[in-house]
Design a protein around this nucleic acid. Sequence first.
DNA 1: AAAATTTCCGGAAACGCTCCCGAAAACGTT
DNA 2: AACGTTTTCGGGAGCGTTTCCGGAAATTTT
Lengths: 340, 340
Amino acid sequence: MQYVTIKDIARALNVSVATVSRAFNDKYDIKKETRELILEKARELGYKPNPIARKLLQKHSYNVGVIVPEFINSFFPEVIIGIQQVFLEKGYQVIIMQSNESAETELENLISMENNMVEGLLISLSKDTRNMDYLEQLNRDRFPVVLFNRVNETLPVSKVVFNDYKWALFATEHLIEQGYKKIFHLSAPRCLTLSKNRINGFKKALEKHRLPCSEAQIIETGILIEDGERVMEQLISSGNVPEAIFATNDPCALGAMKALKKHGYKIPGDIGIVGFSNSKMTEIVEPSLTSVAQPTTEMGKIAARLLLEQITGTGNADPKTILMEGSLIVRNSSIREKQS
Amino acid sequence: MQYVTIKDIARALNVSVATVSRAFNDKYDIKKETRELILEKARELGYKPNPIARKLLQKHSYNVGVIVPEFINSFFPEVIIGIQQVFLEKGYQVIIMQSNESAETELENLISMENNMVEGLLISLSKDTRNMDYLEQLNRDRFPVVLFNRVNETLPVSKVVFNDYKWALFATEHLIEQGYKKIFHLSAPRCLTLSKNRINGFKKALEKHRLPCSEAQIIETGILIEDGERVMEQLISSGNVPEAIFATNDPCALGAMKALKKHGYKIPGDIGIVGFSNSKMTEIVEPSLTSVAQPTTEMGKIAARLLLEQITGTGNADPKTILMEGSLIVRNSSIREKQS
DNA sequence: AAAATTTCCGGAAACGCTCCCGAAAACGTT
DNA sequence: AACGTTTTCGGGAGCGTTTCCGGAAATTTT
């Protein structure tokens, strides 16, 4: 791979390497014919400029990196599509890595991104990321970083997050309005800021409507179908079945539904369910699942534009936090026909 | 970003750059104390080796690239997890890009991968990739490439594919055994080799059991829920509803189910359905969806190992095609209780 | 104590490219 | 015909590393 260099073609044509370089960089410092000649020869020899050597001088790589914890669920892929739309249009390539919810892999990804000289980084933190040293260092070095969805409070960088508090509150209130009283929340790992906000929204709703609200109603579950299923099975077998569930995401809600249906519970009659993120599955499952819609692709776009501003140096440099709003899509899983 | 170089720290300590370099590369050509001293100073100045410069000499980047057409469905993410497992273990980083089913973006990805000096490439072709010139060139330059899942017949590189023919045949036969006669196939874009093989398997099954088999039974649908739904709606409104459906993937099957259920058809009573890829959703939907399970993660691992062999030069260089087998997971969507 | 090793380090070339500077060649101006 | 301009090109330094080679200093051997 990559045998023929600029020198080979300079030698073959008896010109200087400088001239060859000029031919490729389209400088107006070269006669049209020699340019043609060089390009012709280059094609003949199968020459390709070595991008590494080039990058060594000019500091542009036109690469940006995206690190996400997973892409089994459709959330992150949708965000990434938005990110790509913005960057491809501007001539940047998007390098994606997934940390697999591991802080260790995330760090490796981070280092590797640096090695590839990305000009900026969009990150959604893994669930067991605690140590922010590396990111802090990057930020101190004025390296452009934007956090999205899974963010860290303390890091002074731009962030794009969903208004989890508000929509968790709305989702819970919706259940309350339907007459459900004993409401549980199936939470994502509590260490995530996102989880905390959703929990707070959930609590606030109960409080506001003077419903009981104990820690036992908040169950740290996970984000996969299996997680929701497992936790629900446990609740059922321990006889502690709530009247309604607000789940941290759709897969989790779907898992819970699966367990409930298996044990003969009627949804939404016996128990109401609300999910989060409004995935495609909400309309496939029966009953259809009420869910909070998040503008995923839009979120990606906004995060991307924020990063772009930092990279190009336009816009002011102060970190800002963008709070995204969504909507509650009410479907059958949470609507009680008529209540007593 | 990246202000302090090896020279700065050489100057600060009044040693040569060679010595500094040695300190970092752990050569046994340096006194322990000076090494410590240098590392200490480096930490103090916040020095980080410039990976670009390093890559310029030693030809290793320890990066491999993966290009997939999409990751909205869970298939590719699962494959990628397998790929990552193999490479992370060997000290390689995996760079992921998605072509968004566009041949143009795919080419850009390809070029960008080269620019980042990946040592090998794993590709699943986009649905409208026709032109193989670039890949052919890469292959001629002996650049390690492995195709997986979405492959091109003519390209003489290693490939990892699923035995689509056989399992499409089995899936169809299963429907036939259940007594369904008028069976349709909802196909992915026909230009894909994978589609052709599944279509052939489908045809073969019908033929074998002497069932009618016309082109009208094969409908080019797509790979998303919406596609399956749209096509099924059309079939219903035109009054041309089959007795059973073999869909090219689960989302497509789920979309069809959604339309059928909406119009009051009973599954599996009125109509039987089989999907492909055994996604998580098969067990969430009602009735649960019979599907062909593909060893996705395993497929990623095998493709990764094949590439690794090429990169490291172990194993023989002849391109080989690995055919993966799966299994038919029979669920409720295709089981007729008792038939007349 | 001199010779032979070993340890440690500096100089310099190299990787493939870009770009500044200056010189030669071509052209135009009085 | 002498001069100034412009175009075109080559020389060479430099990007930040690694690595080979050789030499000085330290250590061991005779």
